[in-house]
Deep mutational scan, measured.
Amino acid sequence: MQNSHSGVNQLGGVFVNGRPLPDSTRQKIVELAHSGARPCDISRILQVSNGCVSKILGRYYETGSIRPRAIGGSKPRVATPEVVSKIAQYKRECPSIFAWEIRDRLLSEGVCTNDNIPSVSSINRVLRNLASEKQQMGADGMYDKLRMLNGQTGSWGTRPGWYPGTSVPGQPTQDGCQQQEGGGENTNSISSNGEDSDEAQMRLQLKRKLQRNRTSFTQEQIEALEKEFERTHYPDVFARERLAAKIDLPEARIQVWFSNRRAKWRREEKLRNQRRQASNTPSHIPISSSFSTSVYQPIPQPTTPVSSFTSGSMLGRTDTALTNTYSALPPMPSFTMANNLPMQPPVPSQTSSYSCMLPTSPSVNGRSYDTYTPPHMQTHMNSQPMGTSGTTSTGLISPGVSVPVQVPGSEPDMSQYWPRLQ
């Protein structure tokens, strides 16, 4: 039975679970980093996980050691009161100082060594604690504590007292930064006198190289990059290397530039699409467009005044059976039934097929058609009795279509119309 579990990581490298990497692998990681390889490249070359490479390099940059820390136990506290007071002093002298600059000053002034120097995250935590204590304490208590930490007896009751030896409130920041720059020169002199001055200088240079600022491109470089971006948004590694040799930039910087440029292009394309949609959409909808001609068919113009009344309900007709019959029939052209047409008796099958359309009241044959006459024609229609054979009435077949029909004066039988409509 094995005491430890061995495995293979996602890159194909072998590791022992819970145990640190061998010293030979750690040394190779540092050597590759000094030669300029990126952590992701080191991870692929040595088949070590990216997190492990970053952790080893980060500890090497901070402490200069590649040895693993002790497994188990607690780390001794490195942010001692003396170190905290120095950090507060540096922050007062130059409020814009960075944590890694404070760390360098602690090393250069001999406050800490490589073994007990606090990390950048520890210094940031100390600065946050100082800021929170400043908010919790009152103004007087804060000034007393700062005077105690600074070891001075001057008056701290006013704002300019934060910067000793100065009279203009805006000047101390520059003086403090100048003092810090002077301390940086002392850093070089002190570290050069040490035993491991060369190694420390190499480590600091490598650290500065990794902690780079934003790349500033010249106009020629920007023009070359934009020209390549117009050709393709995704250049391959050969195109990037050719462009890197042409404009004297690292291939990694060119790759990052193209990634950022593609993101910018997507944002601009989104804005262009929004403007295009806004320009195509009308600002207001016309009133006429809300009524579609496919839904509402136009009603033909009436030929006679009587045809303006298109349904039985508008003429005072309360018989719903006839109203439904007229509205359900398709529109037909106007025609006239003459008196000489043969009077065919209704076929029983045809009569039964339209039995649902006729009223059940037996008085329908005896009703006159003056009910369908509009009010303004009552006088004219009353002067001509319906009993004469020459009287013409208008029957409504569908809305908007008038059918003048000659009705025999002897017997106005409704059943004569249905064979004609089939």
Results as ranks from 00 to 15, higher is better:
101 E>I: 09
41 D>W: 04
108 S>L: 13
92 R>E: 12
114 N>L: 10
88 A>R: 10
80 T>H: 05
71 I>W: 07
87 I>H: 11
26 R>M: 02
134 K>Y: 10
20 P>K: 01
21 L>A: 05
48 V>G: 00
77 R>I: 02
118 P>F: 00
8 V>S: 03
54 S>N: 06
147 R>F: 12
41 D>R: 06
36 G>M: 04
139 A>L: 11
91 K>Y: 03
100 W>S: 08
35 S>W: 12
131 A>N: 08
52 C>T: 10
112 C>H: 05
104 D>S: 09
124 N>I: 00
70 A>K: 15
4 S>C: 10
58 G>E: 00
145 K>N: 11
51 G>Y: 01
2 Q>K: 15
101 E>G: 07
20 P>H: 01
98 F>L: 06
91 K>V: 03
22 P>W: 02
111 V>I: 10
97 I>G: 15
141 G>L: 13
117 I>W: 15
127 L>G: 12
69 R>D: 02
86 K>I: 06
42 I>L: 01
106 L>W: 04
102 I>S: 04
85 S>D: 08
85 S>V: 08
55 K>T: 00
54 S>R: 08
121 S>W: 00
14 V>C: 08
124 N>C: 03
13 G>Y: 00
11 L>V: 04
2 Q>C: 11
113 T>R: 14
87 I>G: 01
94 C>V: 12
21 L>Q: 04
145 K>T: 12
36 G>N: 08
29 I>V: 05
12 G>E: 03
2 Q>E: 11
53 V>R: 00
34 H>V: 09
43 S>W: 01
45 I>V: 10
28 K>T: 07
31 E>Q: 13
141 G>P: 15
101 E>Q: 15
137 M>S: 13
74 S>L: 01
105 R>L: 12
126 V>S: 07
116 N>I: 09
96 S>E: 12
58 G>P: 05
136 Q>D: 14
128 R>I: 01
114 N>C: 12
89 Q>A: 09
104 D>P: 00
4 S>Q: 13
92 R>S: 13
133 E>N: 12
38 R>S: 05
139 A>F: 10
11 L>F: 08
52 C>V: 07
73 G>C: 04
31 E>L: 08
65 S>V: 04
73 G>M: 03
61 Y>R: 15
17 N>A: 15
19 R>C: 05
82 E>F: 12
146 L>A: 14
13 G>F: 00
111 V>Q: 09
120 V>L: 07
76 P>L: 05
81 P>H: 07
58 G>I: 15
75 K>T: 04
120 V>K: 15
98 F>W: 09
80 T>F: 06
19 R>L: 05
52 C>I: 00
128 R>Q: 06
3 N>K: 14
75 K>S: 04
9 N>Y: 04
113 T>L: 13
97 I>C: 14
139 A>D: 14
5 H>Y: 09
107 L>A: 14
135 Q>F: 11
68 P>C: 03
103 R>F: 01
20 P>N: 00
33 A>M: 11
89 Q>Y: 11
12 G>P: 02
41 D>K: 06
102 I>W: 01
75 K>N: 04
11 L>M: 07
61 Y>G: 06
57 L>Q: 00
60 Y>H: 01
124 N>H: 10
144 D>S: 11
45 I>F: 09
73 G>H: 05
16 V>L: 14
31 E>I: 06
57 L>T: 05
82 E>L: 14
131 A>F: 11
30 V>I: 09
115 D>T: 15
8 V>F: 08
8 V>E: 02
78 V>E: 00
79 A>E: 01
143 Y>P: 13
111 V>C: 09
104 D>Y: 09
64 G>F: 00
105 R>K: 11
107 L>T: 13
47 Q>S: 08
47 Q>F: 03
57 L>A: 00
42 I>V: 06
15 F>E: 00
37 A>D: 03
54 S>Y: 07
30 V>Q: 05
60 Y>A: 00
52 C>N: 00
127 L>R: 15
107 L>C: 08
22 P>S: 05
61 Y>C: 07
87 I>E: 03
66 I>R: 06
55 K>H: 07
142 M>R: 11
43 S>R: 01
27 Q>E: 10
131 A>E: 08
38 R>L: 04
64 G>I: 01
92 R>V: 12
33 A>T: 07
126 V>G: 04
87 I>F: 06
105 R>Y: 08
23 D>P: 07
84 V>P: 01
140 D>F: 09
30 V>A: 07
145 K>Y: 14
46 L>W: 08
89 Q>S: 10
82 E>N: 10
37 A>V: 12
71 I>P: 15
29 I>K: 00
138 G>R: 12
72 G>A: 04
113 T>E: 14
75 K>Y: 03
16 V>K: 15
136 Q>C: 08
104 D>R: 12
28 K>V: 05
137 M>C: 14
51 G>N: 03
145 K>P: 13
26 R>F: 00
139 A>T: 14
125 R>Q: 00
114 N>M: 12
16 V>T: 12
82 E>Q: 11
120 V>W: 00
123 I>R: 01
116 N>R: 15
37 A>H: 15
83 V>D: 02
136 Q>T: 12
30 V>S: 02
124 N>A: 02
145 K>A: 14
30 V>D: 01
18 G>A: 02
116 N>T: 08
103 R>W: 04
131 A>D: 07
43 S>Q: 00
74 S>Y: 03
130 L>Y: 08
36 G>V: 03
21 L>D: 00
75 K>I: 05
104 D>N: 13
78 V>D: 01
115 D>H: 15
34 H>Q: 11
9 N>E: 04
98 F>V: 08
104 D>W: 09
136 Q>R: 14
6 S>M: 15
109 E>Y: 09
65 S>F: 04
61 Y>A: 10
137 M>N: 11
58 G>F: 03
34 H>M: 12
89 Q>W: 10
68 P>V: 03
119 S>I: 03
77 R>D: 05
3 N>E: 10
134 K>W: 09
79 A>Y: 02
146 L>G: 15
28 K>H: 07
22 P>H: 05
21 L>W: 01
106 L>E: 04
111 V>Y: 09
105 R>G: 11
38 R>I: 04
21 L>F: 02
35 S>H: 12
114 N>A: 12
84 V>W: 07
16 V>N: 12
65 S>R: 05
52 C>K: 02
83 V>I: 06
17 N>L: 15
34 H>L: 14
12 G>Q: 03
40 C>R: 07
75 K>E: 03
24 S>T: 12
61 Y>V: 14
20 P>R: 01
82 E>I: 14
28 K>F: 07
137 M>A: 13
94 C>W: 09
63 T>A: 05
49 S>K: 00
41 D>V: 07
150 N>I: 08
58 G>S: 15
66 I>C: 08
16 V>A: 09
4 S>W: 10
150 N>K: 13
110 G>S: 09
97 I>R: 15
48 V>R: 03
77 R>N: 02
127 L>W: 15
100 W>P: 07
86 K>L: 07
80 T>C: 04
32 L>E: 04
10 Q>H: 07
79 A>T: 15
143 Y>C: 12
140 D>N: 10
49 S>N: 06
142 M>A: 11
98 F>Y: 13
59 R>A: 05
83 V>Q: 01
82 E>V: 11
32 L>D: 03
118 P>K: 02
52 C>A: 14
148 M>A: 15
3 N>S: 12
81 P>M: 07
138 G>D: 14
78 V>S: 01
24 S>W: 07
87 I>A: 07
136 Q>N: 14
75 K>C: 04
10 Q>R: 13
106 L>I: 07
105 R>W: 08
150 N>Q: 14
89 Q>R: 13
127 L>F: 06
62 E>P: 03
103 R>N: 06
110 G>K: 15
120 V>Q: 06
37 A>R: 14
